[in-house]
Computed example of a mutant assay.
Amino acid sequence: MSLIKRDFPMLTNLTDFFDDDWLQARFAKDWTPAINVVENDENYEIEVAAPGMRKQDFQVSIENGVLTVTGKTEKEEEEKTKNYTRREFSTRSFTKAFTLPDNVDEEAMKAKYDDGILRLTIAKTEKVLPPKKEVHID
């Protein structure tokens, strides 16, 4: 008797087709909007493309040098007629985090939502370098 490895490509293709990434892409409620990050001499600008959302659907926070942008929107629709009832709902949400450089003024951040674009402006400060420290070698 000998042991022979058998490869069943059809079975492999099916398991690849139904892997976690495929299921998550089809049925997940999370999505990632398009994001642009621009740096100029005075500030950093972050643009988040989130059409169909309202400004109250966003939460923006800075903690320990990390900027976090979260958005969540829910939509519910119901239609009743003589013979049937149709009810639809959808939920979209995202969370995106950015590690901020040392040369930003976290207190001077501005946010504005207009025409489907959330614009965040973070002012730059003078980069303060820590003093040089000599380390003694034993």
Rank of each mutant, 00 (worst) to 15 (best):
L3N: 13
R6M: 09
R6F: 10
P9E: 06
M10P: 04
L11W: 12
L11T: 10
L11P: 10
L11F: 15
N13P: 03
T15D: 10
D16H: 08
D16R: 08
F18C: 03
D20H: 12
D20L: 07
D20P: 07
D21P: 01
Q24L: 00
R26F: 02
R26K: 14
F27N: 10
F27D: 14
F27V: 09
K29A: 05
K29W: 02
K29H: 05
P33W: 06
I35R: 07
N36G: 06
E39G: 07
E39C: 04
N40A: 00
N40H: 01
E42F: 11
Y44A: 05
E45I: 04
I46D: 02
V48D: 06
V48I: 14
P51G: 04
M53S: 05
M53R: 03
R54L: 15
K55H: 13
Q56A: 15
D57R: 00
D57T: 01
F58N: 02
Q59R: 12
I62R: 05
I62F: 12
N64D: 15
G65F: 07
V66H: 09
T68N: 06
V69D: 03
G71M: 07
G71Y: 06
K72Y: 04
E74L: 05
E74T: 11
E79W: 00
E79R: 00
K80P: 00
K80F: 05
K82F: 14
N83Q: 13
N83P: 02
Y84F: 05
Y84D: 08
R86I: 07
R86C: 03
E88R: 06
F89M: 07
S90N: 11
T91W: 08
T91V: 12
T91E: 15
S93D: 06
F94H: 02
A97E: 12
A97P: 02
A97Q: 11
T99Q: 11
P101N: 00
N103L: 09
N103Y: 07
V104W: 06
A108P: 09
M109V: 12
M109C: 11
A111Y: 11
A111N: 13
A111H: 11
K112N: 15
D114I: 01
D114M: 02
D114N: 06
I117C: 03
I117N: 03
L120P: 08
T121K: 10
T121Q: 15
I122G: 13
I122Q: 13
T125P: 00
T125W: 04
P130D: 07
P131S: 09
K132W: 03
K133G: 01
E134N: 10
E134W: 08
H136W: 13
D138P: 13
D138N: 11
